[in-house]
């Protein structure tokens, strides 16, 4: 039987924010705060750095724009210059629309797939799913989880610490085999 970490339930979003601050101040690194909806101010409470997703989206958007403009220029100036109602071959004002659309399309792919990459999803197995009560976290429960990979992890100490800061339903995450 392997142990993966400890979870503790808190009653309100406010209690979860305070708990996050205390867990961070106690020096834990591999912990997370689970809630049914994003909680305002939680990033600061947990001491998280800004998401780097923005850079990915920006790079993707730029790629899309360059690709769009390049594609049109290549088609009409190099690959097959064709005179259609006397329009210039390099009609760059007319290329604005498709350049813009492909920029948006690529940015959207960057946002969604980048978000999945940073969140490591799809990932269908995770220690927190070993807890039955934890499933309420997508409805009305608020949980702190501290994982075993944390350098400060010590099962008994973590359990008593979480109890001290107001956690209830404290559970040790274990797999069944």
């Amino acid at each position: 039987m392997n142990t993966y970490g400890v979870i503790a339930r808190f009653d309100t979003p406010l209690a979860l924010v305070h708990a996050a601050e205390k867990v961070k101040d106690a020096g834990f690194k591999d912990f997370d705060c689970h809630s049914p909806f994003p909680i305002h101010g939680m990033d600061d409470a947990m001491g998280l750095k800004r998401s780097k997703l923005g850079y990915v989206i920006g790079a993707m958007g730029l790629t899309g724009a360059l690709f769009g403009f390049g594609l049109q220029t290549w088609i009409h100036s190099i690959e097959y210059p064709m005179n259609i109602s006397g329009k210039p071959f390099f009609a760059y004002p007319a290329y604005a629309i498709i350049t813009f659309e492909l920029m948006v399309l690529f940015s959207a792919f960057g946002a969604v797939f980048g978000m999945m990459y940073f969140n490591s999803i799809p990932r269908f197995h995770h220690p927190v799913f070993y807890s039955d009560k934890f499933s309420r976290v997508t409805s009305d429960a608020f949980y702190v989880s501290i994982e075993i990979s944390d350098p400060k992890y010590n099962e008994e100490e973590v359990k008593s610490f979480l109890e001290k800061i107001g956690g209830t339903d404290i559970e040790v995450l274990k797999d069944e085999n």
């Binding site: 996050a20 947990m46 998280l48 948006v104 940015s107 946002a111 978000m115 999803i121």
Partner: peptide
């Protein structure tokens, strides 16, 4: 659901992605 577990480490990127999608 892709294994969503509602952790704030997920919400953080999720919210930014959602905001950018709204923005574009």
């Amino acid at each position: 659901a892709l294994g969503w577990r509602g952790g704030n480490r997920q919400w953080q990127h999720y919210e930014l992605a959602y905001l950018v999608l709204a923005g574009i």
